[in-house]
Structures are given as C-alpha cells and as structure tokens.
Design a protein around this nucleic acid. Structure first.
Length: 121
DNA sequence: GCACTGACGCGGG
DNA sequence: TCCCGCGCCAGTG
C-alpha cells in the first residue's frame, strides 16, 4: 500500500526539534482518516531506524508510542536532546504542542502532494 | 470472507 | 474542559 511510502516521506521531513501528530501526518499524506496506519507504520520500526519516529505523538501531545522503542525512555530522551520539553503527567510523557508542535504550512502540504505525484504514489 | 486488533481522532454530552 | 462512544481502515490469522 503506497500510503506507507507517503508516511515515510512526510515523517522524514518533520523539522528537528518539533513534534507532529499521527493525524497531522495522515493529513499531509492526503489520507486524513488513516491516522491509525501512521502508528502501524512506525511500530516495530517498520520504516527503518533513520526515521525520526520519536517526533510523532498523539493529538494530545502524549508520547503514546514510547513503549515501542528499544529503551523505555528513549523517545523522551531523543526529544529532550532536541530541546523539546517533555512533561511527566499521569497519562504519560507529554509535549506542549502549542510550543513545540510542528506548524506545517499550506506550502508544505502542496509540496508533499507534488512529491507524491512525481513518484506516482 | 470474517472477526479482531491497534504508537488514532473527533464530536457530543 | 473532560470523558466517552463510535468511526476509521490496513494487517493478521
């Protein structure tokens, strides 16, 4: 399914020091209802090691995929290493999307659409 | 084909 | 605002 190729491209382009949501990635893939597939693609490292999977959090900013990393607190530490503040809440580790969320532009969305078009995916 | 699952998200109360 | 229910859809057995 080429949605996974799209997911990989978008994830590779999340800016350093920013966090993106599953729904946001799905939207940029042109598949707004496929947020679950974003999580599936990232789980168990299906897209490879060089994908910045640690920058993906859920709509509330919770690091809902932290358990899938090799080390229990790896996602948290990778984010902190990029200057992203990670709070410890009763619902789990959480980032402030207002402050550290990726505010992608319309141009970003159009650019991805072009790339998908070029690659025929 | 069927049923169930999951790193999800939204709308209504 | 905070829960909760429901919709979503590709994988898997």
């Amino acid at each position: 399914m080429d949605i996974y190729k799209r997911i990989e491209i978008v994830c590779r382009n999340i800016p350093y020091g920013k966090a993106a949501t599953y729904g946001q990635i799905a939207l940029l893939c042109g598949k707004p209802r496929n947020a679950r597939q974003v999580g599936y693609a990232l789980s168990r490292g299906r897209l490879g090691e060089e994908i910045p999977a640690h920058r993906i959090v859920n709509a509330r900013g919770i690091l809902s995929g932290a358990a899938s990393f090799d080390v229990y607190d790896l996602q948290k530490r990778l984010l902190e290493a990029e200057g992203v503040e990670v709070r410890d809440t009763e619902d789990g580790w959480q980032v402030d999307l207002k402050k550290d969320g990726w505010n992608h532009t319309l141009e970003d969305a159009l650019r991805f659409r072009e790339i998908f078009e070029e690659k025929g995916i």
